[in-house]
Design a protein around this nucleic acid. Structure first.
Length: 886
RNA sequence: GCGUCCUUAGCUCAGUUGGUUAGAGCGUUGCAUUGACAUUGCAGAGGCCACUAGUUCGAAUCUAGUAGGACGCACCA
């Protein structure tokens, strides 16, 4: 590495190299040992999914936490894996088969599953390979899939266990039906969206009368399933209809007019049509009034035989037709535009239909008690805390969980039917056990395996994911690993799946481990585009993560994302923010390049943290490093990773590059770099790379390896995290250096305003109470400014007609050999005077206020007095300076 | 409808228990630069802290209300 070190950092040449190196050395693998564990389980992405920006953000955060913990000496274990994602994957497979001209209905269950497994093997895990590009330091030996054999066994055993405990039951209820996937959904899988629809006013003839009643509906097709008209018992307008009957239009069915105070007299006409089979509320009314239930819709959303008309036609087609037909028949009074909320399937995005159906349920009330309590009392901490409210609200009103899905891809429910009755089934792990149980339950000892039919339904995906923190360690069957790694430390996930997943993992954790599954939950925000829209495939507004990585480097993308995402806040993502990360990488690279170019062939360098105690700059830089270590530890504890990164960024760019390296440069260009100085600079650099590593693992490893090529050899990713040492922080040094920085800044300012070139030598006078210490360090000023003469003293008579500045209580004067622009200087001083006057006005206002002086704490008053004293002193100095020019 | 949270510079956000004339990054403007880095350096401009009323000696910060926004829950056909 001599002069050929390029001035541009090229991540593509570096990142794959180090990732392979880490993998070859097995640095990410964890086995239980006597260290304290630090465990994170990945939110398993859909096995056939593709990496999107949400994953990028989420996994970057997990990697930062894992890498830092690993360096801190914890036995870090980040478990990766994928989810079989029952409905989403099945939908994809069905679509793909359809493209090949194969209908799902033409296949047997096993044939279909073969296709699904083929698809899984083909596409499964692509997403995990993509995570490696990002730098994710997962323990890949532990990669788990929710349909792995052992995992599946734990799902089935859990089902059986909960069934035996009476927590799982089978029952007929109104459920959310997805006509595209042809399956039931849980309440959480329904998304309500505001849509523009129509309100149809339809009149029903009263039997044996010429009168009509008018109802309003948004779903006129359900008229086919009407079995009553309902009015409020107290509604004076309809008293005369009590006990009468009405005729359902088109199908001409006579239905009763019933009374129920469920009806809102204010809404519409105050008349409600009742369709017990296709609406949650109507179902309840139907139950109370013993109404007939007409199931007028097939599983695919077409009208069934029972609908009598439009049989086989799709529900939305029917809506169009029935509008015309009602109009023709004289039953359509009017239609009006209407906005209402309609439920859509979370996965297939089709309008769900409420449907009466026999499904499997988990009774949630009791199970969720410990999960509620332990979040509310902060045993499990949510970051940000505001999500506790949302969580509590859901948990306090938790409803039973519909866990059966009419799909094939997933864990098949271990229930076996031996008869036609709703109760003629047993739950058992194997067919053999089922036979035994069925014989006992049916008291029919002649039953054989051939008489039993296994439940066709599979389990909701989340019924397997809720065991994730336990089952990835095979925790139901082997205790050594689970007892070591569980409870895990942090869970990083999106608030969207708080109910689907987080809440249920907590429930399962208390039910099966008797304790919390994780100590902290970090909720990330939603990644949005510049216009604030959620990034999604359908909108096509999501950049391809891999392209981003190839453009900016994984480090650049990681930094860009982390830089602008406080916990729980949405991330309005503009790829341009990754450019900042790329620039930062290049800045770091060039800082290293500068040192490297000054390192000599054949010399052995030994990076050290033993600084030159005589050198203020060394002491200051070391203080800054340790101040930062302390500060970012606090940020990490509060999960404010962006704040931590910003501090490291500023430490490297502002403190190290702009000041430390500038001051470490040899006196003259071309001079040799002092060996001891180089070793200290490299030692500082090492510390910085350690602090940077969790955020930007590749470039930090690259530089670390370059530095250590000349000395020891150990990977940065498993080196030790710098420990905060209060003795390394010298506040006096920091403050002295800060005031020297202020003086240099003031001189730059004067040059800038007076248009004096940085190369022109200037004559500088500094008046300071700290003159001794500044004099000791005057080389700093001389190094960063072109100085003709420098005079520093506690007091002196100020020279006439020169540019001046105040730095704290110190005064700086610059003699400018007539270069000085008098008008500009006067203007500058006047501006400064008016600023100080305004400042003093505020301070005096307070001090002259008797109420303030009587009520405010002494420290606050004292502070104001100091401000007044300093302000007045400064004002006097400024006025003196001004008087020189007038 | 109920609940929770939010509103600070052009953009994205900090701002501890109320106590400097409210900060940062990006962007923007000006100047500079053969020397690690134009992927750079230096400097400047830019704010009625959404609005209104209170509490207080003192409010970006506390209280109430108004407006706008986000999320969660429940929904009237």
């Amino acid at each position: 590495m001599k002069k050929e070190i390029p001035a541009q950092y090229d991540p593509s040449k570096v990142e794959d190299k180090w990732y392979s190196y880490w993998m070859e050395n097995n640095y990410f693998h964890s086995e239980p040992d006597d260290r304290e564990p630090f465990t994170i389980v990945i939110p398993p992405p859909n096995v056939t999914g593709v990496l999107h920006m949400g994953h990028m953000l989420n996994n970057t955060i997990q990697d930062v936490l894992t890498r830092k913990a690993r360096m801190q000496g914890f036995n870090a274990c980040w478990v990766p894996g994928t989810d079989h994602a029952s409905i989403a994957t099945e939908a994809k497979v069905v679509r793909k088969l359809r493209e090949q001209g194969i209908k799902k209905s033409d296949l047997s269950r096993n044939e279909f599953l073969e296709h699904a497994w083929d698809w899984t093997h083909e596409h499964g895990g692509i997403i995990l390979e993509q995570l490696k590009k990002l730098g994710a330091s997962c323990d890949w030996n532990r990669t788990t899939f929710t349909m792995d054999e052992a995992y599946s066994e734990s799902v089935i055993d859990t089902f059986i266990d909960l069934y035996n405990k009476g927590k799982i039951y089978r029952g007929a209820r109104m459920i959310n039906w997805d006509p595209a996937a042809k399956t039931a959904l849980s309440d959480e899988e329904v998304i309500y969206k505001e849509v523009n629809s129509k309100l149809y006013h339809v009149r029903y003839k009263i039997s044996d009368s010429d009168e009509y009643v008018t109802i309003a509906t948004t779903r006129p097709e359900t008229i086919l399933g009407d079995t009553a008209i309902c009015i409020h018992p107290d509604d004076k307008r309809y008293t005369h209809l009590h006990g009468k009957k009405a005729i359902v239009p088109l199908v001409s069915r006579e239905v009763p007019i019933i009374l129920d105070d469920y009806v809102d007299m204010e809404f519409g006409t105050g008349c409600l049509k009742v369709t017990p089979a296709h609406d949650v509320n109507d179902y309840e009314i139907g139950q109370q009034h013993n109404l007939e239930t007409i199931n007028m819709m097939n599983v695919d959303g077409t009208v069934s035989k029972e609908g009598e008309l439009y049989t086989g036609m799709d529900r939305f087609e029917v809506r169009k037709h029935i509008e015309k037909d009602l109009d023709k028949a004289g039953n359509l009074v009017k239609t009006q535009d209407y906005q209402n909320k309609v439920g859509f399937s979370e996965r297939t995005d089709v309008v769900i239909e409420p449907r009466l159906s026999l499904q499997w349920w988990v009774a949630m009330k009791e199970l969720s008690q410990p999960a509620l309590e332990n979040v509310m009392n902060d045993n499990i901490r949510f970051h940000p805390e505001k999500f506790k409210n949302t969580y509590r609200h859901w948990m306090e009103n938790v409803r039973d969980w519909c866990i059966s899905r009419q799909l094939w891809w997933g864990h098949r429910i271990p229930a076996y039917y031996y008869g036609e009755g709703d109760d003629d089934f047993v739950v058992a792990k194997t067919l053999k056990e089922a036979v035994q149980a069925a014989r006992e339950k049916s008291e029919n000892s002649n039953l054989t395996e051939n008489d039993l039919k296994q439940e066709e339904d599979v389990l909701d995906t989340w019924f397997s994911s809720w065991l994730w923190p336990i089952s990835v360690f095979d925790g139901f069957y082997k205790k050594d690993e689970i007892n070591y790694y569980y409870p895990t430390n942090d869970l990083v996930t999106a608030p969207e799946i708080m109910f689907f997943w987080v809440a249920r993992m907590i429930i399962a954790g208390y039910e099966y481990r008797g304790e919390l599954p994780f100590k902290n939950v970090y909720y990330t925000g939603i990644v949005r585009d510049k216009q604030g829209r959620k990034m999604s495939k359908s909108l096509g507004n999501s950049p391809d993560p891999l392209e981003l990585i190839s453009e900016y480097g994984a480090d650049g993308v990681r930094m860009g994302m982390l830089f602008s995402t406080p916990a729980g806040n949405d991330l309005p993502f503009d790829p341009a923010i990754c450019d900042q990360g790329k620039k930062f990488s290049n800045k770091i690279w060039n800082a290293f390049r500068f040192l490297a170019l000054n390192m000599e062939e054949g010399v052995t360098y030994k990076p050290t943290t033993e600084i030159d105690s005589e050198n203020l700059v060394d002491r200051w830089m070391m203080s800054r490093i340790h101040q930062t270590i302390k500060e970012i530890e606090k940020d990490f504890q509060n999960y404010k990773l962006n704040d931590a990164l910003k501090k490291v960024y500023s430490l490297i760019w502002d403190d190290f590059c702009d000041w430390y390296i500038e001051l470490a440069k040899p006196a003259k260009y071309g001079d040799k770099f002092d060996l001891a100085k180089m070793n200290i600079a490299l030692g500082m650099f090492e510390q910085l790379m350690k602090l940077l590593h969790p955020f930007m693992p590749f470039i930090s490893e690259e530089i670390w390896q370059h530095i250590n090529e000349r000395s020891k050899n150990q990977a940065l990713c498993i080196s030790n995290w710098p420990e905060y040492d209060a003795e390394k922080v010298n506040k006096e040094d920091v403050s002295l250096f800060n005031s020297i920085q202020g003086m240099i800044s003031a001189l730059r300012n004067i040059r800038s305003e007076m248009s004096v070139s940085p190369k022109d030598d200037i004559e500088v006078l500094i008046k300071s109470k700290n003159a001794d210490r500044i004099t000791e360090n005057e080389w700093i000023i001389r190094k960063l400014q072109s100085i003709k003469s420098l005079f520093i003293a506690e007091d002196f008579e100020k020279p006439k007609a020169c540019a001046s500045a105040l730095v704290g209580n110190d005064e700086i004067y610059v003699q400018m050999f007539g270069l000085i622009d008098v008008d500009k200087e006067i203007e500058r001083i006047k501006k400064e005077i008016s600023r100080v006057e305004g400042f003093l006005k505020g301070v005096n206002g307070k001090l002259n206020n008797a109420n303030f002086v009587e009520n405010a704490p002494e420290a606050v008053i004292e502070n104001e007095r100091n401000k007044k004293r300093d302000g007045e002193a400064n004002l006097a100095k400024l006025q003196e300076q001004l008087s020189d020019f007038e």
